[in-house]
Design a protein around this nucleic acid. Sequence first.
DNA 1: AAAGAATGTTGTCAGTGACAACATTAAAAA
DNA 2: TTTTTAATGTTGTCACTGACAACATTCTTT
Lengths: 197, 197
Amino acid sequence: MSQSSYHHGNLREALLERAVEVLGEVGVEGLSLRGLSRDLGVSHGAPARHFSSKGELLSAIAKEGYRRMTAAALMAAEGKTSAVERLRAMGRASVRWAMRNRAFYSAIMNPDVNRYGDEGLQASLQDYLAVVRAAFEAAQAEGWKPKHKLQALQIFGMATTIGASIIFSDYLKSNLFGELNDEKLIDEIIDLVIPPL
Amino acid sequence: MSQSSYHHGNLREALLERAVEVLGEVGVEGLSLRGLSRDLGVSHGAPARHFSSKGELLSAIAKEGYRRMTAAALMAAEGKTSAVERLRAMGRASVRWAMRNRAFYSAIMNPDVNRYGDEGLQASLQDYLAVVRAAFEAAQAEGWKPKHKLQALQIFGMATTIGASIIFSDYLKSNLFGELNDEKLIDEIIDLVIPPL
DNA sequence: AAAGAATGTTGTCAGTGACAACATTAAAAA
DNA sequence: TTTTTAATGTTGTCACTGACAACATTCTTT
């Protein structure tokens, strides 16, 4: 943790932090390990000690993204008085989180990332899915669409969430739908997936 | 159109065709103009005459993808006897098309592509959206969720379609939900978005 | 037949990811 | 404390890539 001029002292975290900034500015294709090195005043070989490839760096960002998205969803559910309301809050929170954390979300969604099949990444995704699944299960137990299979309901809900996140976090596409009042529209879409009680 | 050894004769189409193959195998990051040149037995500078950058090539693929997806949706709607059934068929067809055309879909979804803001690409997307919008409008006029705003319904439906396409076309993620019977699940999800009459 | 436009080739450059050999510092062991 | 070892950073190098410029060949149009 010391900062001699030779050892950075906190390079791993610094790389992740700067990478998230860069991702938000120029996207996955514009991110480069060497660029990060320059930004942090470190040699081009240094990142390799922490991330053996660009894919591994992106995986780490995706993993942290899942952690934060899960936390955001759980926090939004707190204090709600019914499982249906909790699920609705989680859906809203997920879409909002994606809009406000494009950098993380772009790492999560990048198909070229998952192929590097980080174990930790898989675990984080599993955790997220477990939380989501429990919420769907509880909502159904409370009377939401009792005739449908839980698996179908979960994929339905998650698909809508993912799609909405993509649409709302892409300025370009958003414009194609006309002017969007994001907050109201998100609420209305949540209503369509899980009608309020 | 002749094939002297100097002029390829059909390079633009050949590049697109091969690029789609490569995209399906190794994804956007694995696609390279020089690799395509090698595959086609052409010099590394040749593609520049047709696509001034990798982004432009991807844009062209995305554009063609929109065209085909639109065609697939319209074809699926043919012969259906109600607007609701047409909309349901279009949703099913879109998800199936994405599953069967991952290469095109990965170009369509790649956020780093759209930034190159091809005019033609924008136009194709507009065409697709116009077709979709008309279908949603007709379904609503027929009694589907009359109390909701058309814009919200369209984004809801498209979001679910996009999300389902992503989930179903990703082997890795599919496994996380347990074994998926894709066809049946897609049908059930369509039912959840647009209940059958 | 000649001129000009398309199309393809060759050469080159800087940027990149990846790796190996080496340097420095921190941590652990003795 | 001293020594050894592990962690971390540096430098050098390689092949690959996208992009561009100068040049060559062929097609099209006049």
